[in-house]
C-alpha cells in the first residue's frame, strides 16, 4: 500500500521480470507513476524499453513480480479487465489507425470499450459525436473539417496528430507511448512531444520511451534501462553527456548491479 497521504499510483511495477531468450528482457524492475507525472524512458535498443511498455499496458504478463493499475492487479473477469484497459491509452509507433475508415470513425473507435453494439454499428453508417471529435481534433491542432476524410488521405504529420487525438478521445488516465517520435523530422517530433506533454496533466500520467536524450527537457522524471535493469531515475536536469555515454556506450557498465 502506498504511504498515507500520497494518492494511489496510476501504474506500479514491483520487481517485474520478463525472461528473454538469452538474458532477461526485464530484470526486477520496480517503478511508480503518479497522476500528473510525465516520465521519459531512455535506453539503448534492446535495453528493454518496449518490453517495459508492453508490461505497462498489459500485453505482456511478467513471469514474476506484479503490475498494478490504480492499485489493482489485472482483473480476472473480462468485463472488469476491459474497463481497466480502457483507462490505459497507448500511442503506437506504427499508429495502428484503421486505414479503411474515416477520421471520425477512427476517433470513435476509441470509445468502443464504452459503447454497445448498436452505437458501434451506427458509427459505421453515419457520423457520431461530431462535437466531441471536433474538440479533440482542435486539441491536437487539426481542422475538424477533416472528420469525414478517409485516413489514407491524411499527411504523415496529420496521421500522427490523429493518433494522439484518438488517444485523447479514449479518455485514459495512463498514457503510454513507445518511441512515438522515431522516424519523424526534428520539427514535427518537437511539436508532437510538446503536444503530448501539454495533454499529460493531472489526473493523467505519461510514460514515453525515447531514443533521443536531447528531448527529455520537458519531462518531470527520466528513467533509464540498461540490459533489462532500471538504472536511473532522475530529474531531466541530471541527464548530462557522461550519463548518456554510460547509457548508450559500449563500455563497461558504471552501474554495479548489472550482470556481466
Amino acid at each position: 500500500m502506498p504511504p498515507s497521504g500520497l494518492p494511489t499510483p496510476l501504474l506500479e511495477l514491483r520487481e517485474v521480470t520478463v525472461p528473454g531468450r538469452a538474458a532477461d528482457r526485464l530484470a526486477g524492475v520496480s517503478l511508480q507513476l503518479r497522476s500528473g507525472e510525465r516520465v521519459a524512458l531512455l535506453g539503448a535498443s534492446g535495453a528493454g524499453k518496449s518490453t517495459l511498455l508492453a508490461v505497462a499496458n498489459g500485453l505482456v504478463a511478467p513471469a514474476s513480480g506484479a503490475v498494478l493499475w490504480e492499485g489493482a492487479p489485472p482483473a480476472r473477469s473480462r468485463r472488469l479487465r476491459q474497463r481497466q484497459r480502457a483507462r490505459i491509452g497507448t500511442l503506437w509507433q506504427d499508429l495502428r489507425l484503421i486505414e479503411e475508415l474515416t477520421v471520425q470513425q477512427n476517433l470513435n473507435a476509441a470509445r468502443l470499450a464504452e459503447w454497445g453494439w448498436p452505437k458501434a454499428l451506427l458509427n459505421l453508417l453515419q457520423p457520431l459525436d461530431t462535437a466531441a471529435n471536433s474538440a479533440v481534433l482542435r486539441e491536437v491542432d487539426l481542422d475538424p473539417a477533416l472528420l469525414p476524410q478517409s485516413v489514407t488521405a491524411l499527411s504523415g504529420g496529420q496521421r500522427q496528430r490523429l493518433a494522439i487525438a484518438r488517444l485523447l478521445r479514449q479518455q485514459p488516465t495512463l498514457l503510454l507511448a513507445d518511441e512515438p517520435l522515431a522516424h519523424l523530422d526534428p520539427r514535427l517530433a518537437a511539436e508532437l512531444l510538446a503536444l503530448l506533454l501539454r495533454q499529460a496533466t493531472a489526473p493523467r500520467a505519461l510514460l514515453l520511451s525515447l531514443h533521443r536524450p536531447d528531448l527529455v527537457g520537458g519531462f518531470d522524471r527520466v528513467l533509464a534501462l540498461r540490459a533489462g535493469r532500471l538504472v536511473l531515475d532522475t530529474p531531466p536536469a541530471a541527464v548530462d553527456p557522461a550519463l548518456i555515454q554510460a547509457l548508450y556506450g559500449a563500455g563497461p557498465s558504471p552501474w554495479p548491479d548489472e550482470p556481466r
Binding site: N57, G58, L59, R78, Q82, R83, Q84, R85, A86, R87, I88, G89, T90, W92, R96, A109, A110, L112, A113, Q170, P172
Partner: peptide, 9 residues
C-alpha cells in the same frame, strides 16, 4: 490489437 488494448471487446 490496438483496440483490444484500449479495452474494446
Amino acid at each position: 490489437l490496438a483496440l483490444r488494448c484500449a479495452g474494446c471487446g
